[in-house]
């Protein structure tokens, strides 16, 4: 398997064939994960916390597919299968999460997570 040598500066460069290496996919998925983390941590709106979690799940999916594509290919495509199941679980999570947002909104008349403080000790 061909390996691209890392340059001394540490920044990834494209090899002569101009094909993106596994590293670039990992960097993009790390960036997507951190944007999702940013949305989940810094937004005050419950729906956006859910969107952030969905982005983090999608970043994990990109990683699974990239490792499947660049690694040795097993007979059952494990990375693809894990991603399909992860998408199904994410859909279930989004449905329940949005239903929770609706139920909480009905009680508090707000979706700002700072104001959901009835259980606070």
């Amino acid at each position: 398997m061909a390996r691209t040598p890392l340059p001394a500066g540490g920044t990834p460069t494209l090899p002569e064939t101009m094909t993106p290496a596994l590293q670039l996919f990992l960097i993009v998925s790390a960036a997507l994960f951190c944007i999702g983390l940013l949305a989940a941590l810094s937004r005050r709106h419950a729906i956006f916390i859910l969107i952030g979690i969905e982005m983090m799940l999608a970043a994990a999916g990109i990683n699974f597919i990239a490792f499947w594509r660049f690694g040795p290919q097993p007979a059952p495509p494990t990375g693809v299968m894990v991603t399909i199941f992860a998408i199904a679980i994410a859909a279930a999570e989004a449905a329940v999460g949005l239903a929770l947002v609706m139920a909480v909104y009905r009680h508090y008349r707000t979706t700002n997570v700072d104001q959901f403080d009835q259980l606070k000790g």
């Binding site: 890392l6 290496a21 596994l22 994960f33 660049f70």
Partner: peptide, 16 residues
């Protein structure tokens, strides 16, 4: 994450 990815030489493989 970036440090870990750039530090790991094994992930700089090309697609076959």
């Amino acid at each position: 994450l970036l440090w870990a990815i750039l530090k790991t030489a094994r992930v700089s493989v090309l697609a076959v």
